[in-house]
Simulated scan of single mutants.
Amino acid sequence: MDLLVLGGTQWLGRTLAAEGAARGHRVTCLARGEAGSVAAGTELVRADRSEPGAYDAVAGRDWDAVIDVTRQPGYARAAVAALGDTARHWTFISSCNVYARHDEPGADESAALLPPLASDESTPETYGEAKSAIEQAYRETLGDRFLTIRPGLIAGPGDASGRSGYWVARMARAARDGGPVLVPDILDAAAQAIHVDDLVRFTLDSAERRLTGVFNAVGDRTTFGAWLDGSRDAAAYDGDVVAIDTGWLGEQGVVEWSGPDSLPLWIADPEWNAFLDRSNAAAKREGLRVRPLGQLLAETLAWEREQGLDRDRGAGLTAAREAELLATLTA
């Protein structure tokens, strides 16, 4: 299969390209090549998708499959104009952020979407609207050659955001250095993540058989408490875990979800309480297989150890900040 990956030098795109090559496909990655190298066995075509003529080097060629991961509507609109007529199948990796509401547990692909972003350029604040616009642009042009995959939280080795690996790495540090571990008191809250390799396998399996439609590619629903228990097991930590009232954490400046001074998987906004609780039934009927939580966490921990448990992270509390909070509690 002649496979074109629009991107291919960052985490998800590179993993898709690497697996495509491992399956014996002829894989071309169109990217600037500044974010990193392409996977072994793939070809890099250097292009800046924001520039006119970005697709000239790959246009006019019959592609068996195209996969795009962009969040910029302008990139997608230009790509489908240049390549849409010759692509036999097109996959867009969208996001569950396209949904207008995130407070209905178990919602499926029929849920209402955000209005598409009119602009060609997105910002972090318009991420969901941008993905919605890209879906619309591809759907209107490609019709029955188009597959939309909507992941939620993507987890596993390579997650540079620091979110999916934070808790298992934190338990590993506690097993090494001693506890306790501070956690938000949300043990019954929904938690859900898909291992990057499971997402990639479903994407390529679907492209190979030219599946069309819209699918939530999300992990099985679990709870934050089960995620913590799995992290403890993977790290062999049997010490204390201190569950702290989320209102108090907010008063101390601890934030939800991601970024500095955060606690990953904690979603404080009640309007987003089911963001990590969407249905994957349709994707499972079409072959999505998700590995058990324990395996996901063990594989993530192995990667976290390789990267360094004490490194600066994109999400979570530093050791000093966590110690400060615990000290404040007991003062």
Rank of each mutant, 00 (worst) to 15 (best):
R176M: 03
Q136C: 09
N273G: 13
D269L: 03
R23I: 08
R150Q: 10
L293W: 04
G156L: 06
Q295S: 09
L325D: 12
W167S: 01
R77K: 12
P116I: 03
W11I: 06
S231K: 14
P115D: 10
R289K: 10
A327S: 11
A155H: 10
H89I: 02
G41H: 08
G239C: 06
H195R: 12
P115N: 13
G106D: 10
E251K: 12
A87F: 10
R313Y: 12
D229S: 11
V45E: 04
Q72H: 10
R170Y: 02
L147W: 09
W303L: 06
A35Q: 10
A320R: 02
T141S: 12
A87S: 14
N216W: 00
T148W: 01
A331L: 04
V168G: 03
R150W: 14
A268N: 13
M1W: 03
P115E: 10
R278T: 00
E304N: 14
R77E: 12
L187W: 15
D312F: 10
T246E: 14
T222S: 13
R221H: 01
T15V: 13
A226K: 11
A155G: 15
H195K: 09
A22T: 15
Y127H: 15
R49V: 07
T91R: 09
G247Q: 09
V27L: 14
G294N: 04
N216S: 05
P264S: 01
D177R: 05
I244F: 11
E324C: 02
T126Y: 04
W257Q: 12
H195C: 08
